[in-house]
Design a binder for these strands. Structure first.
Length: 527
DNA sequence: ATAGGGTTAG
C-alpha cells in the first residue's frame, strides 16, 4: 500500500536547515556604522532610517544597540524612532515599558502610528488590559489602530470582544479594511460562529478584498465550523497563486474533519512540501491509525531534512504511539534535538497508553532531572498524562504521590481532569473510601466538581457495589450535565449493575422527553 | 514609520 511516487520518496535532501548565524557577529556592522559616522551625520533622520532597516531585517539586537547609542549620544528621539525599536523588543515587556515612558516624555504618543506600534508591543507580551489602556488613551484612532486592537483581542482569546470592537469601529464611522475582515474571520472561527462567518465572507466578496491570506482565514473558519466541503471549495476556487500557508490550512481543515485521504492526495501533488504540511499529513496518519502511510511520510520527512523540526517530530512520536508502535515512538523521541514540553508529554503518554506506567514515570523523572539544563517544565497536560499512565498500570500509590507534589513541586494547580483521573484510579484500585473523601471535598468547594469527576466516582461506586453513594453521585451528575446523552448511558449502566431496572426505565423516559439521542459509535478493527 | 493567513500533547 504505497501512496507516494518514488520520485518523492527518493528525492535528495534539497535544503538542510542552516544553523542560525551568530547574533554577535551580525550586530558588529551596525555598531561600526554608527561609530564610523562623522559626527555631523549622526542626525535623527539618518539614524531612524538605520534603526528601521535593522528592525525590518529582523536584526533586533542591532536595533536595540543602536537605539542605546542614540540615547547615549543625546540624539533627539522622535515619532520615527519608536516603531522600529518597539518591534525589536516585543518579547521583553520590561524594556517595552521603559520605551513607553520615553514616548510619553518626548510627546510621541499623539500620532496613531506610534501609538499603534506601542499597542502591538503590548499585545505581544502583556495582559490585554495593558493593550486596552493604550488604545483608550489614543487621541486619534485610524483603521490601522482599530485593526491592531481587534487582532490583539482575537489572539488573546477575546473573540467576542473583538466582534464588539468591530461594531464600535463601524459606529465611529471608520471604514473596515481587508485586515479587519481577516481578524473577524479568526474571531468567528474561535467562536464557531458559522452564520456570522458567512456574513463576513459575503463582505469579503462585496468589498473585493479576497486574497490568498483572506482565503486562508476563510478555510480555517469553515474548518472550525465543521464545514470541510466549504473549506475545500474556497481552496479550489481560488484563482491567485496558492502559497504554502493556504495548502497547510486546507490540509489542517481535512485532518480536523476526518477527510484524511484528501490530505494524502494533496501531499502527492504538492511541490515543494513544507514541514507544516507534513505535520498535518502525519496527524492524518495518527487519526486514521494508518501506520503504513505514516512510515512513508516519515521517510519523506527524513529525506527532506525536516527531522530537526520539533513540532513535526512531536507529531511523529504521537503517530507511532497511536498506531501501536511504541518502540518507534521512543526512537523518534530520542531524535528530537530540541525537546519541548509536548515532546516529553507525548512520550510519557505513549508509555501510559501502552500500559507501561513504570517507564512513563521514569521518563517523567528524567524530565525533572533535565529541567535545569533544558528549561522545560511539566504543565497540566504532562501531569495528566502521568496520572493516566499510573491509572492504566494500576500504580495507585505512585499516582497519589505525584498528585500530592503537583502544586508544590511542579507548580501545577490540579484541575477537574486531574481529579477525575485520580478518583477513577482510586476506584479501580477498590479504594472507594479515599475516592469518596476526595469527591466530597470537591463537592464542598463546587468549582472543581465536573461531569467527568462524577462519572469517575460513579464507576468507583459500581466497582465497589456501593449503591447508596452512587445514587448521590447520579443526582450531582444529572444536575451538572443534563444535556449530555452519554451521561444517561453511564447512569443506566450503574442502575443495570444493581438490577434496578425501574431506574433505567425512568432515565429512558427522561431521555425521550428531553429529545436526547446518543451518537452512534463506530468501531474499527485493524485487518 | 504601524498591519492580516498555516503545524505538535489531553
Amino acid at each position: 500500500m504505497k501512496i507516494l511516487p518514488n520520485s518523492l520518496l527518493s528525492r535528495r535532501v534539497s535544503s538542510c536547515p542552516a544553523s542560525s548565524p551568530s547574533t554577535s557577529l551580525q550586530c558588529l556592522p551596525a555598531l561600526h556604522l554608527f561609530d564610523e559616522m562623522p559626527l555631523r551625520d549622526r542626525d535623527s533622520r539618518r539614524l531612524n532610517a538605520l534603526l528601521s532597516s535593522h528592525a525590518r531585517s529582523g536584526d533586533f539586537t542591532s536595533a536595540l544597540l543602536l537605539f542605546q547609542k542614540m540615547r547615549a549620544f543625546g540624539v533627539p528621539l522622535d515619532s520615527y524612532s519608536f516603531p522600529s525599536v518597539l518591534s525589536a523588543c516585543s518579547t521583553s515587556p520590561r524594556l517595552g515599558r521603559q520605551l513607553h515612558s520615553l514616548m510619553v516624555k518626548s510627546g510621541c504618543l499623539s500620532s496613531p502610528i506610534t501609538a499603534t506600534s506601542l499597542l502591538r508591543m503590548y499585545s505581544n507580551s502583556s495582559p490585554i488590559e495593558d493593550v486596552l489602556l493604550v488604545f483608550d488613551e489614543m487621541p486619534t484612532r485610524d483603521a490601522v489602530a482599530w485593526n491592531a486592537l481587534i487582532s490583539s483581542l482575537v489572539t488573546s482569546g477575546h473573540a467576542g470582544e473583538a466582534v464588539s470592537a468591530f461594531r464600535s469601529m463601524a459606529a465611529t464611522g471608520i471604514l473596515f479594511t481587508g485586515f479587519t475582515l481577516c481578524s473577524l474571520l479568526k474571531a468567528c472561527a474561535a467562536l464557531r460562529a458559522a452564520r456570522q462567518g458567512e456574513q463576513i465572507h459575503a463582505q469579503v466578496i462585496i468589498a473585493g478584498c479576497d486574497s490568498v491570506v483572506i482565503s486562508t482565514a476563510l478555510i480555517d473558519l469553515y474548518s472550525s465550523c465543521s464545514q470541510v466541503d466549504m473549506a475545500i471549495g474556497v481552496f479550489s476556487r481560488l484563482e491567485c497563486p496558492k502559497d504554502p500557508a493556504i495548502h497547510n490550512a486546507v490540509a489542517n481543515a481535512c485532518v480536523k474533519n476526518g477527510s484524511f485521504h484528501e490530505v494524502f492526495a494533496l501531499l502527492v501533488k504538492m511541490k515543494p512540501v513544507n514541514a507544516v504540511f507534513l505535520t498535518s499529513a502525519i496527524a492524518a496518519c495518527s487519526e486514521s491509525l494508518n501506520l503504513s502511510y505514516g512510515r512513508q511520510i516519515h521517510c519523506v520527512i527524513f529525506r527532506h531534512g525536516f527531522d530537526f523540526d520539533t513540532i513535526l517530530c512531536n507529531a511523529i512520536i504521537n503517530m507511532y504511539s497511536k498506531c501501536g508502535h511504541l518502540r518507534f515512538a521512543h526512537l523518534a523521541f530520542d531524535c528530537v534535538g530540541d525537546k519541548n514540553v509536548i515532546s516529553w508529554t507525548s512520550i510519557i503518554d505513549a508509555y501510559g497508553i501502552h500500559g507501561r506506567g513504570g517507564e512513563a514515570l521514569a521518563l517523567f523523572n528524567r524530565m525533572e532531572d533535565e529541567k535545569a539544563s533544558t528549561t522545560v517544565s511539566p504543565n497540566e497536560v504532562t501531569l495528566l498524562s502521568v496520572l493516566s499512565a499510573c491509572s492504566h498500570s494500576g500504580l495507585v500509590d505512585e499516582a497519589k504521590q505525584c498528585f500530592l507534589l503537583m502544586k508544590e513541586k511542579h507548580g501545577v494547580e490540579p484541575n477537574s481532569a486531574h481529579y477525575a483521573c485520580l478518583i477513577d484510579l482510586l476506584g479501580r484500585g477498590g479504594r472507594i473510601e479515599e475516592a469518596w473523601d476526595l469527591f466530597c471535598a470537591l463537592n464542598a468547594s463546587k468549582n472543581t466538581l465536573s461531569g467527568p469527576v462524577c462519572v469517575a466516582m460513579l464507576n468507583a461506586c459500581r466497582i465497589s457495589m456501593d449503591f447508596a453513594r452512587g445514587e448521590l453521585v447520579v443526582m450531582n451528575l444529572l444536575e451538572l450535565d443534563p444535556g449530555n446523552p452519554s451521561v444517561y448511558v453511564q447512569i443506566s449502566n450503574f442502575y443495570g449493575d444493581f438490577g434496578r431496572w425501574e431506574g433505567v426505565e425512568k432515565l429512558r423516559e427522561g431521555l425521550i422527553t428531553r429529545g436526547l439521542k446518543k451518537e452512534l459509535g463506530r468501531s474499527q478493527i485493524a485487518a
